[in-house]
Write a protein that binds this DNA or RNA. Sequence first.
DNA 1: CGAATCTCCTGGAGGC
DNA 2: TGCCTCCAGGAGATTC
Length: 271
Amino acid sequence: MPELPEVETTRRGLLPLVGKAVKSIAIRHATLRWPIPQHLIQTLPNQTLHGLTRRAKYILCEFDTGVLLLHLGMSGRICLLDCNYLPEKHDHFDIEFNDGQVLRLRDPRRFGAVLWIDNKNNDHKLLNSLGPEPLEDGFNAKYLHQVLSNKTLAIKNAIMDGHVVVGVGNIYASESLFRARIHPEMPAKQLSLAQCTRLVTEIKSTLNDSLKAGGSSLRDFFGTDGNPGYFQQEYFVYARTNELCKVCSKPIKCIRLGQRSTFFCAQCQKR
DNA sequence: CGAATCTCCTGGAGGC
DNA sequence: TGCCTCCAGGAGATTC
């Protein structure tokens, strides 16, 4: 379940491909979240990868005539391999480059995506209504306080809404709220400016901590080199139901919010 | 319009 | 060992 730090780590791992030209495309299982466009088989060969950027959890591969958009869903993983490696069961999509390297997407649960944005269209509905990046200056306490001011839903659901801020998934939502000492069920509009300040700070630091640790935190995340190599992050609350709070020693609680498991400490986090 | 619910999918865990 | 059920979750689509 890649979150933003894993996606960014994946992007960085792919940077050696920038400047290379595509030799061929393989589509073995086109039915991801949306169908992988078959025209990529004809479109991409001989195009050069000019840049690799990221917006939210989308990796954007800039080619001559358009942008290839990659999303890892929740079980996706991209490896950079020598083309001699045979694909395995859930290896759905390859980009083979002229130097013999292969970008290979493996995604058992197929919630991921491979889409094409032609330069002529210049934008994509998936990208044009997204909120600010959590690690950029546009995501600050004043902004958050303003955007939450008319929202009645629980704050945890609000920060997981990509129109409010992108890249905050289920794990980091619970962790950030604990670190900011805010109850996940608190109505979003009731947060004070001071609470928004704490929440923004903790979202940024939680993501940054994970990024520094090499991407994650997560049991099933692998880097582009195929090695787990991650730092086993110490969660304060995530997946620690009934374990003792590391701050106050009360048991951690688990509730459902927006069909998602939500972990918190009722002693440390107030409404 | 906002908010809640539905949906895609498969591996892994637990029960018997 | 096998089979069944349940669960996890990103986020767009659908419904209310």
